[in-house]
Design a protein around this nucleic acid. Structure first.
Lengths: 199, 199
DNA sequence: GTCTATATCCAGATAGAC
DNA sequence: GTCTATCTGGATATAGAC
């Protein structure tokens, strides 16, 4: 009843939400939306099946919450790298290293990456998530700008910069999927990705 | 009752099976196993929901049949290219061109490619499909051999050939997924992939 | 706030008419 | 061989006890 209790309750409430979201992130990213059962999420989060519905209205709402975070975190990484005072090739290297390292070590950011991919192929949701997914092109556009700058300064190969940017992220997406299907798969040397665009 | 009728029945039976498999290929590859409903497949194939079960014992059996074909067709392509009398770089180029073209034009082979990816991340099925998926490494190994040969002849960059081979296929997998989520996405110039490994 | 038990719904699979 | 109608299981979501 005291204010302190209320604050604690709030803290517990937030903690529970985070537990659920954290469990759901791994589950959705690994198995996709349809194959993920609420029971899976609850078990992973260490709470009862019914309690999930105390914190979220529906399975879909959980996914939506994750997708929002996913869009933010993945675009932010690229925006930060683009703004860094580095030569274009080095920016590409940093991006490749950073993302590959997150995949290799099963960091959240790698799973967010996969959430976006899953959302993209959910055609029924496409309408609903359209605005959110629209910003998924942000990372690609940032990378394309980095590559264009590198082409002007002669460090990056000539050719379609946007196509290269897509291929860069496609490779990372594919590698994340490989890592998921075989946990002992070793992510490759980032330099392989740098070579794709370096002159 | 006449032999001819029996033959015709056989032909019809085969045709129906193919209709179902063809519809299922697109559906499974696009949405994954769990999100694909038998009703979707039946509707796409232009027949009733119940009839699917006249030709296949279960949804899983359909997926399994597709996976078997997928393993065969995708490995065969790389085996053929490896055996061709071409310099290593040219083999890489042919592989990139061939697969990208199949993605761009929504050919079956591109969907088979995705079926394998879906099967790989179905952890419950991993045990059952293990033998089948084991051969999915065949394409990667073939590409790695091509790259190693190119390294010896000086056409291909030094470095981990297996890692390069995985990254090559990872990029193609990612691009196939992009193409699926945005049908007007234009697959990039194959040369971008060749550049990844070319000296 | 948390759990267990229950209702509801949906999709896989079957049965039986034609 | 093909369809429609039905059964059944399992998963989402809710209700109610603690």
């Amino acid at each position: 009843m005291s204010p302190r209790n209320e604050e604690q309750n709030e803290a517990v409430k937030d903690e529970r939400r985070e537990q659920i979201l954290s469990a759901a992130l791994r589950a959705f990213a690994s198995r996709g939306f349809a194959a993920t059962k609420i029971g899976d999420i609850a078990a992973r989060a260490g709470l009862s099946h019914g309690l999930v519905y105390h914190y979220f209205k529906s399975k879909e709402e959980i996914f939506h919450a994750l997708l929002k975070r996913a869009m933010h975190t993945s675009t932010q990484t690229l925006i930060d790298i683009e703004a860094a005072p580095l030569p274009p090739v080095e920016k590409v290297r940093q991006a490749a290293k950073h993302i590959l390292e997150s995949i290799e070590n099963f960091k959240d950011s790698a799973y967010y990456f996969l959430i976006v991919a899953h959302a993209s192929v959910m055609e029924n949701a496409a309408a609903e998530y359209k605005e959110l997914l629209g910003s998924s092109a942000v990372s690609v556009q940032a990378m394309a700008r980095i590559l264009s700058a590198g082409q002007r300064s002669g460090e990056i190969r000539d050719g379609d910069a946007v196509g290269m940017a897509y291929t860069f992220f496609a490779a990372l997406l594919g590698l994340a999927l490989y890592k998921l299907s075989a946990r002992d798969f070793k992510t490759p040397d980032p330099e392989i990705l740098v070579n794709m665009v370096k002159k």
